[in-house]
Design a protein around this nucleic acid. Sequence first.
DNA 1: TATTGAGATGGGAGCGCTCCCATGACACCA
DNA 2: TGGTGTCATGGGAGCGCTCCCATCTCAATA
Lengths: 335, 335
Amino acid sequence: MTDRNRGAGRPTLEEVAVRAGVGRGTVSRVVNGSAQVSPRAKAAVEDAIAELGYVPNRAARTLVTQRTDSIALVIFESGERFFAEPFFGRIVQSISSVLVARNLQMVLMIAQAPEERRRLEGYLTRQHVDGALLLSLHGDDPLPSLLEDRAVATVRVGRPMYADRGTYVDADNRAGAREAVTYLRQQGRRRIAAITGPLDMAAGLARLDGYRDVVGDGPVAFGDFSQESGEAAMLRLLEQYPDVDAVFAASDTMAVGALRVLRHYGRRVPQDVALIGFDDSAVALHTEPPLTSVDQPIAEMGREMVRLLLAKLDGDDTGNSEVVLPTRLVIRGSA
Amino acid sequence: MTDRNRGAGRPTLEEVAVRAGVGRGTVSRVVNGSAQVSPRAKAAVEDAIAELGYVPNRAARTLVTQRTDSIALVIFESGERFFAEPFFGRIVQSISSVLVARNLQMVLMIAQAPEERRRLEGYLTRQHVDGALLLSLHGDDPLPSLLEDRAVATVRVGRPMYADRGTYVDADNRAGAREAVTYLRQQGRRRIAAITGPLDMAAGLARLDGYRDVVGDGPVAFGDFSQESGEAAMLRLLEQYPDVDAVFAASDTMAVGALRVLRHYGRRVPQDVALIGFDDSAVALHTEPPLTSVDQPIAEMGREMVRLLLAKLDGDDTGNSEVVLPTRLVIRGSA
DNA sequence: TATTGAGATGGGAGCGCTCCCATGACACCA
DNA sequence: TGGTGTCATGGGAGCGCTCCCATCTCAATA
C-alpha cells in the first residue's frame, strides 16, 4: 500500500528522480513519452514511479504548458430539458467515454438563465479550459465567436444558422426528414402533417425543410422538441386538419406526445394516422405501437466532435471543418 | 489569427499591480477579499482589474494552495441508466447550480465498466479534485473508504449499507414507502404487492423495508428501477398473484412499466389495481391516469450534499454527518 | 590517436500565484 | 521628543512542472 502519506504529500517529480538515480528532466521525459531516453533510464524511472505511486501534478503542468486538459461541455438548455431529451444523454455518454480515454477532464456546464449565462462567459477562458463542446445552441448565439476570439477552441452540434464560421458536427437532418416523409407518401398517405422542432435551432429548421422538400406547404404545427409541445401541436393539427392521415414529428419525444393525443381522440395508429418520430431513442421501442423513427448516429457524432476538437487543439486543423453524418429510417409499428 | 504565441496573453497579477501602482501582495489581498487593505488601494486595484480584464490563473493558485476548486460528480451507472432515470437529472441540476454559484468546477464522471472504474480510481486524488459527490453506489463499494484514505472528501447519496462511516444525504425512503402502503391499505386494498428496486442499493432496500413494515411479507417482485424491470416484475406478479389489487413500485420508472402491463392485461387503474410510484418525477404527470407517487426533495438533497462537502473541505466538520430528508405522498389518479 | 556528431542527461529558469515576514507610516501616549 | 502598537504594504520564496541548453558519453570516422 502507498499509505503513510501525509494527506496531500504526494511524491513529486524530484523525488522520483532521486529514487531512480536520474535527473528531473529524464523523469519528465519518461512521463511524457519522449523517445530521447535510454531504455535503462526509462526502466529505472518507471520502477520508481510505481514504487512511489507518483501522479503528475496537473496544476504545475498546466502552469507551464498553458494547457488545462479540461474540456467544457456546454448545454444551452434548462437542466430539465437536458435530462428529458434522450439525445443529450446519448451524446454526452459518447463524448464522456472518448474524453476519459484521452485523460481529459469533462466539465459539464448547463446554462440557460441569464445569470448562469454571464457566469459561464466569464468562465470560458484559456485559463480554465482548452476547448468547448457546444450543444443545443439557439438562434445566432454569439458565444462561439466570442470563444474563438479568446482562443478557446469550439466544436458544436448543428450547422451554424447565420454565420458560416465554426466547426460543427451534424446529422443530415434534412435528408432524414425527406426520407421519412417520402416513406409516408409511398405508403399511400395523402395528408401528411409535420410537428416541427424549435425553428431557432438548426436541427428544427432542417427537419422542417426536409418535410417541405417532399410535401411543399402541408399542414404544420410548431413545437419545441418537448413532449408537451408535441401534444399541443397534435391537438391543433387535429382541430385544423381533421383529415390528417400521417404525422412526421421532428423528435421522438414530440411523437410520444402526439401518440397520446391520437389515442385519446380514438385515432388508431397506424391505421388511421401513421406516425414517424426522429432520433430513434429508447422511448421509440416502448410506445404502443413502437415508433418508426429516423435514427441519427449519435455516438458517432460525439466521437467526431471530440476528434475535431482535439485536432483544433493540436493545431492540425486551423480552418473550420464540418462533418455531416447520414441518418437512417428505422421502421416499426407506427408507420 | 491567433498564432502559437501566448495568444490571448491574459494579464497577470503583476501587471495589475503595476497598473494600480501597488505591490503584488496587495492585489492578491484584494482579489481574495482580505480585510487588510486600505480603501484607496482597493479601489485602485479594482479599477486596474476591470481595465485589464484580469482573471486569476487557476493553475497557479492551485499550485500553491493545494486546492483545485474542482468537485467530481461520480455516477456508478451506465450512461444509459444515468439519463433514463429522472432522479439523476434533478439532483445533478441542483448540484450544478450550487457549485456554479460557488465558482467550483463540476467534473462529471460516469463509470460502470471495470476499465472506466479503474481509470476513475486513479484519477480521484487531491491532485485533481478537492472532493467527490457519489451517486448510485451499489453494495459495499470500497471507493468511499479509498477516497477518504486519500484525503479526498466525499459525500454520497444513501445510507452506507454495511460500513457505518461516511457522510451521506438521503430521503427517508423507509418512511415514504410506509406512508404509501399505509395509504393503499386505508383505501381498502387487501392484496398489496411491491415491485422493489435493486437490493444492493440503500434506496432499494429501504423502500422494501417500508413496505414490509406495513404488510409483512406480501407478494414481492424484484426490479432494478428500470422500466423494463418494472414490466417484467408486474408480469410475474400478475401470474403468481392474480388477486393483486394494489402495487407499490419503488420508482416511477418501474411504475410506468407496471402500468403498461396492467393496461395490456385489461386491468383498470385504479379501479382494479391501485398503483403508487416513488420519486414524483415528471413522468408521473404524463401517465394515464397520472401517477400517485412518493416525492423526495431532490433539489434539497443536492444542496445538502454540496453544503456537507464544503463543510468537510473547510474542516468545519471532521466527523461523519448524515442528513435524512422527509418524503411526501403526492396523490393523483392511480391510487 | 584525435576529431566529430548523435544521442542521453542534468539542472537552471520561470510559469503566476499565495504566504509570510520585514518594513514603513501613522496615531497615540508618556 | 521619543517610544510603542497598529495597520497597510512590498516583495522574496517557493509550489511542481516543462523547456531548453550546456555538458557528457561513446562509437564511428579521419
